[in-house]
Simulated scan of single mutants.
Amino acid sequence: MRRMILPSLTAVALFAATGAYAAQATGSIKSMDAKAHTLTLDNGTVFSIPAKQGMGKMKTGEKVKVTYQDKGGKHMATSVVPQ
């Protein structure tokens, strides 16, 4: 029984930690929707922007790097930086 506990806990910890990593995407802004708080890149990927972060001075056509996490099936942006 003890032989199974440590490997099981390790597997659960590794599985839980994989969702915590942020991913990155780069591209040009294709469109923005201030009401829905979304940003779409030229490759069609849609990112949700937190209301408190706002859309700032972003413009359509601007190249950006988006850092995001997947939450609830959505790409939630944590950072949007001009390139």
Rank of each mutant, 00 (worst) to 15 (best):
L9V: 15
L9E: 03
L9K: 04
L9I: 14
T10S: 09
T10N: 03
A11R: 00
V12W: 08
V12L: 15
A13N: 03
F15H: 09
A16D: 04
A16I: 12
A16S: 11
A17C: 10
A17I: 13
T18H: 10
G19M: 06
A20Y: 11
Y21D: 11
A22N: 14
A23F: 14
Q24N: 12
Q24F: 09
A25S: 15
A25F: 04
G27V: 01
S28Y: 07
I29E: 02
I29L: 02
I29D: 01
K30Q: 13
K30L: 12
S31I: 11
M32A: 05
M32G: 07
M32P: 07
D33Y: 05
D33I: 11
D33Q: 07
A34R: 12
A34L: 12
A36I: 12
T38N: 02
T38C: 03
L39M: 10
T40Q: 12
T40N: 04
T40A: 08
L41Q: 01
L41I: 03
L41N: 02
L41D: 01
L41P: 00
D42S: 15
D42A: 12
D42M: 05
T45P: 01
T45H: 08
F47Q: 00
S48Y: 09
S48E: 05
A51K: 10
A51G: 04
A51Y: 03
K52F: 09
K52D: 15
K52C: 04
Q53C: 03
G54K: 00
G54S: 04
G56P: 06
K57W: 01
K57A: 14
M58V: 08
K59T: 15
K59C: 11
T60R: 12
T60F: 05
T60A: 14
T60E: 15
G61M: 06
E62T: 11
E62G: 08
